[in-house]
Computed example of a mutant assay.
Amino acid sequence: MVRVVVVDDEPMVCVFLRTILGSADDIEVVDEAHDGAAGVEAVLRSRPDVVLMDLRMPGVDGLTAIERIAEFADPPAIVVLTTFDADQYVLRALRAGASGFLVKSTPPEDLIGLVRVAAEGHTVMSAAAARRLVAASTDRLSARDRARKLVESLTEREVEVLACLGEGLPNAQIAERLFLSEATIKGYVSRMLEKLGCGNRTQAGLIAYDAGLVEL
């Protein structure tokens, strides 16, 4: 069962998400909150697998909440909820630890599958939207320099794996492309995330883009 916490200051959005996700046999909305501080408390209280987090809320905003949740010992996957996919706050949220984002106009029939993908540890974000977000970054030049320095610490094989993460590929597809076992890829990913100081695959994927390893 995929356990979900919804954090949004609009009660109707929470009701909508509860209704849609509740129709799936393997997903349960276990808690909800209407500001960032309450969202952090809900995560501590309910220990979800996935958090759907609005960014713009009164009081403690979603970005601050994401930063706090990402510091937990075993944080859940955090998926940003946003109205506009080019919102600058979304890029900051991804760098802070979010594993992807959904626009609030996501069709209901797609939402359940995307929550399942997030629970499995994969990025929930379209390539086109990611391109717009990263291109809008105000510190693109410095981000590129930082990313290239980080990549210099990796082995040749780790760089290949990182490029695959930049494309959003799951471990099984990376293994098939590089002619390695899935277990071997898991080991590479784990060591690479530690070297890069990344909390999840999405952050590593952004480094791959910044370093020029992949074009989104």
Rank of each mutant, 00 (worst) to 15 (best):
S99P: 11
A127V: 03
A98W: 09
M57D: 08
D87G: 09
A129M: 04
E182W: 04
V29D: 15
I174C: 05
A118F: 03
R148H: 06
E67G: 08
V51M: 09
L150E: 04
M12R: 13
S126L: 06
R191F: 09
A172C: 07
A163I: 08
A211P: 11
P76V: 02
E176D: 14
R132W: 04
L102F: 03
A128F: 01
V161D: 04
V151S: 05
L193W: 12
L111H: 00
P11L: 10
T138I: 08
A128E: 09
I66K: 00
I78Y: 01
I66L: 00
C164A: 09
A175F: 11
P107S: 05
A208E: 04
I112A: 09
S190A: 12
V90Y: 05
A33Y: 00
A183W: 12
V189L: 04
V7D: 03
R148I: 07
A147W: 10
Y89H: 15
R47N: 09
E176Y: 08
T202V: 07
A96T: 06
S181T: 14
G39Y: 02
P76N: 11
L133Y: 05
E182M: 09
R95L: 08
A24W: 13
R92S: 08
A175P: 10
R132K: 14
E109Y: 12
D85C: 10
P48R: 08
L94P: 04
S126K: 11
D31S: 12
F101M: 06
P170T: 12
L169Y: 00
G113M: 08
G59E: 05
T138Q: 08
F84I: 02
V30N: 07
V117H: 06
Y209M: 11
A135I: 01
D25M: 07
A37T: 04
V50T: 04
I112C: 05
Q203I: 15
V6T: 02
D54K: 02
E176N: 13
A211S: 13
Q88L: 12
Y209I: 15
L169T: 07
R116Y: 07
